[in-house]
Design a protein around this nucleic acid. Structure first.
Length: 584
RNA sequence: GCUCCCAUAGUUUAACUGGAUAAAAUAGGGGUUUCCUAAACCCUAGCUCCGUGUUCGAGUCACGGUGGGAGCGCCA
C-alpha cells in the first residue's frame, strides 16, 4: 500500500463505517478493491462500490454519490488527495501530482527506490531454463525459453529472492548416437572453422533422413549400427567417448557463445550425462523397495490414483530415459542446493511429463514437490508447422541474429558510419538486436504460440524492443545537451502536465509491477508496462521540452523527471535482460 | 478415442484475473522537422468464433459445438 492508497483507504473506511453500523471496514480490506480508472481525467484511483451494496442496502451508484458528498469536507489543500467524485458506481480519487513527484523522484534519483525490494530476504529459488541438446542446432524456439528464464531470474533477484539460475544440457541420448553414426560413416565434409555445433545439427538431420529413407536389409543394418554406438557410449567405450567429448565441446562452444552474446549467465550448469547413473540407481532402488514396478520388461510407476497413467522410468534394455534423469536432477536440487522453491521453464508439450515427475517425487517422499512449478510456454511455430531439428525445418538463432544486425546496420546506423568508431557501431547494433529479440519473445503471454516470420523480427517501429531503447537514448541525449546538473532540489509543483503525471504514476507503481511479474511468472507484465512507459515518455518529449522550457526552474524540474524516467527504464530493461545503448 | 492450451480490428497482440465507453502496434487515409535524434509525435477508420447458462454485471467463469496447436508406456 503506498501513501496514496493508504490515504484513500483510510478516508473511505472512516466514512463507510460511519454510514454502516453493522459492519466494520478495515483500510487494508478496501485496498484489495482499489483499481485504476480507464482514463486519467476520471481520477487516479477508483473504489468500486458494488461490494457495499448488500450491507448498506442501496445501489452502488447511490453509495458512490453519498460517499463522495461526505468526503468533500475532508479535502484540504495540502492533502495528497485533491479531488473526489462519483462516476456511476465508482468513487474516484484524484491525487496530487506534486505529492507524487515528491514521493517518488528523490528516491529514484538517489537509487534507493530500486534497492527497496531486495531488502526483504526471501527463500532460495532455483530456476531451470534453456536446456538445449548438444549435437542439435540452437534455433529461435530455444530463444523464447532463454528470454523467459533469464528475465525471471533477474526479476526474482530484484524482488529479494536468492536465485540460482541453472541450465540443464542434454548431452546424452539417442540423437547423439545418430549424429555420430552419420559423422563416422557417411560424412564427407570437413568440419567448418566456426559454428561446428550447428554443423553437427545438420549432420543429425541428415542422419535422421538417411535412417528414415533406408529400406529393407540396409535399414536393419543402419539401425544396428546406431544401436551399437549407443551401447558403446553407455559402456564408456574409449574411442567413442573421446569422439563424444570432442563433438560435445563443439556444441557447447556454440551455446556459450550465444549466451555470452545475449548476456545470459547461469549460476550452475547441469549435464544429463552427470545424472544418468544416479537416475538409474534411484529407479532400481525404487523397484527394490516397491515404490516402482516392472511392467513389460521396463520399470515405471503406476500413477492411476493421480489420474496420470503409467509413467515409464527405465527402458526394458536398462537404458535411462529423460524421466530417469529428471528424478536424479530433482534430488540434487533439493539435497545439494537446498532450494525451497524450484521452477522449471519448459515447453507446454511437457506438461503431462512434469505432472508425472512431481507425482513420482511425492510418492518417493519428497515433500518439497509442493514448491515445484513447471512454467510452460507455447511453441515458436513456422507458418508450415512445428519446428523440428529432426526434420531440419528450423530457423537457427544465428540466422536471426545475423539478419537483424544487418538490418540495423544498413537502415539506421549507416548515418553514423563517418563519426562513430567501428567498435561503437558493432556494440550498438548488438544491443539493439538483443533488445529486439528479447522484447519480441517477452512482450506477449507465454501460453500463446508465436508464428515466426523473419520480416516481423526486422521491424523497428511501434511495439518493439527497438522502440524502448530508442526512448531511452533520447532521454540521455537531453541530458547531454542541457548544461545543468541533475538535482532533486527542484520545485515539484511545476510538473503539472498530464503527460508528466502519467510518468510519475508509472514510476510509483514500478516496484509493484515487477513484483507481480515475478509472482505470476509473467515477464510480459513488465514488458508491456515498459512499453506504455516509453510511449508516455515519447508523448511528454513532444509536449514538455526541457531544452525550451519557459523558465530555469521548470527546466530543472523536467530534467529531474526525465532523468528518473531514464533510470526507471534502464532498471526495467535490465530486468528483461536488455542493456540499451547510450546513443543510436 | 481421451486430456491440455489457444480463438478479440485486415494482421500481430492488450484488457489490472468478473467491473466503467474493449486498448495498442502494424497495414490503410491525412498531417507534424528554422525548435532536446522522424527508429518519433498527432488526427482518422476498423474488433470479442457460434450457442446455452451462472449474476447487479461476462472478452474474462461453466457446459455444448466449430476451427488451430500440443500431449497420451520404451523420443527428449
Amino acid at each position: 500500500m503506498n501513501l496514496f492508497e493508504q490515504t484513500i483507504c483510510e478516508m473511505a473506511a472512516k466514512v463507510l463505517n460511519s454510514a454502516d453500523e453493522s459492519g466494520v471496514w478495515e483500510p487494508f480490506e478496501l485496498n484489495e478493491l482499489i483499481e485504476q480508472p480507464p482514463n486519467p481525467e476520471m481520477g487516479d484511483y477508483a473504489l468500486p462500490c458494488f461490494s457495499f451494496a448488500k450491507s448498506l442496502r442501496r445501489s452502488p451508484i447511490k453509495i458512490a454519490e453519498e460517499l463522495a458528498d461526505k468526503l468533500q469536507t475532508d479535502l484540504n489543500h495540502d492533502s495528497s488527495v485533491t479531488a473526489i467524485q462519483a462516476v456511476g458506481p465508482y468513487l474516484n480519487f484524484t491525487v496530487s501530482a506534486v505529492v507524487m513527484a515528491e514521493t517518488v523522484l528523490p528516491d529514484i534519483f538517489l537509487g534507493t527506490y530500486f534497492k527497496a525490494p531486495s531488502k526483504i530476504a526471501l527463500e532460495r529459488v532455483m530456476i531451470e531454463y534453456s536446456q538445449p541438446n548438444t549435437h542439435k542446432g540452437f534455433h529461435v524456439g530455444h530463444m523464447r525459453n532463454v528470454a523467459l528464464g533469464d528475465s525471471l531470474c533477474r526479476i526474482y533477484k530484484y524482488n529479494g529472492y536468492e536465485v540460482v539460475g541453472v541450465n540443464y544440457i542434454g548431452d546424452v541420448g539417442a540423437h547423439i548416437a545418430k549424429c555420430l553414426w552419420f559423422f563416422r560413416n557417411h560424412n564427407t565434409e570437413t568440419p567448418p572453422e566456426h559454428f561446428r555445433g550447428e554443423w553437427l545439427g545438420e549432420l543429425y538431420t541428415q542422419a535422421v533422413k538417411k535412417l528414415d529413407d533406408a529400406q529393407g536389409q540396409e535399414k536393419i543394418k543402419f539401425q544396428q549400427e546406431v544401436s551399437q554406438i549407443l551401447q558403446k557410449l553407455e559402456a564408456k567405450d574409449k574411442e567413442f567417448t573421446r569422439e563424444w567429448k570432442m563433438t560435445r565441446e563443439w556444441s557447447l562452444k556454440d551455446f556459450y557463445e550465444i549466451y555470452e552474446w545475449l548476456d545470459v549467465n547461469f549460476d550452475h550448469i547441469f549435464y544429463e550425462s552427470e545424472v544418468d547413473e544416479e537416475g538409474r540407481k534411484i529407479v532400481l532402488e525404487g523397484e527394490q523397495n516397491g515404490t516402482f514396478e516392472r511392467s513389460e520388461g521396463a520399470i515405471g510407476i503406476n500413477l492411476e490414483e493421480e489420474n496420470l497413467g503409467f509413467f515409464m522410468l527405465l527402458k526394458s534394455d536398462g537404458n535411462t530415459l529423460y524421466a530417469t534423469k529428471d528424478l536424479a536432477l530433482a534430488q540434487r536440487k533439493f539435497d545439494e542446493f537446498g532450494v525451497k522453491r524450484s521452477i522449471y521453464v519448459v515447453g507446454a508439450e511437457q506438461t503431462l511429463h512434469f505432472k508425472q515427475v512431481f507425482a513420482t517425487l511425492k510418492r518417493m517422499g519428497y515433500v518439497q514437490v509442493g514448491q515445484c512449478f513447471h512454467l510452460p510456454y507455447a511453441l515458436v511455430m513456422l507458418p508450415e508447422g512445428k519446428m523440428s531439428s529432426r526434420a531440419g525445418n528450423v530457423i537457427l538463432f544465428s540466422q536471426l541474429r545475423k539478419e537483424i544486425i544487418e538490418s540495423i546496420q544498413s537502415t539506421h546506423l549507416a548515418e553514423h558510419r563517418e563519426d562513430w568508431s567501428q567498435l561503437e557501431l558493432n556494440e550498438t547494433a548488438q544491443k539493439i538486436a538483443v533488445a529486439a529479440i528479447k522484447y519480441g519473445m517477452l512482450n506477449q503471454d507465454s501460453n500463446k504460440q508465436i508464428v515466426f516470420s523473419m520480416k516481423d523480427w526486422l521491424i523497428s517501429e511501434g511495439d518493439t524492443g527497438t522502440y524502448l531503447v530508442y526512448a531511452y537514448v533520447r532521454i540521455r541525449s537531453i541530458g547531454r545537451q542541457i548544461p545543468r546538473e541533475v538535482s532533486s532540489d527542484v520545485d515539484f509543483s511545476l510538473l503539472v502536465h498530464p503527460n508528466e503525471k502519467k510518468l510519475l504514476r508509472q514510476m510509483l507503481d514500478f516496484n509493484r509491477t515487477v513484483y507481480n511479474s515475478g509472482e505470476q511468472y509473467r515477464p510480459s507484465l513488465l514488458a508491456r508496462m515498459l512499453y506504455e512507459f516509453s510511449k508516455n515518455f515519447s508523448r511528454a518529449y513532444n509536449t514538455c521540452s526541457v531544452k525550451h522550457a519557459e523558465t530555469a526552474q521548470l527546466q530543472a524540474a523536467r530534467l529531474l523527471l526525465f532523468h528518473c524516467v531514464a533510470e526507471t527504464l534502464l532498471q526495467g530493461l535490465h530486468l528483461l535482460g536488455i542493456t540499451p545503448p547510450e546513443r543510436m
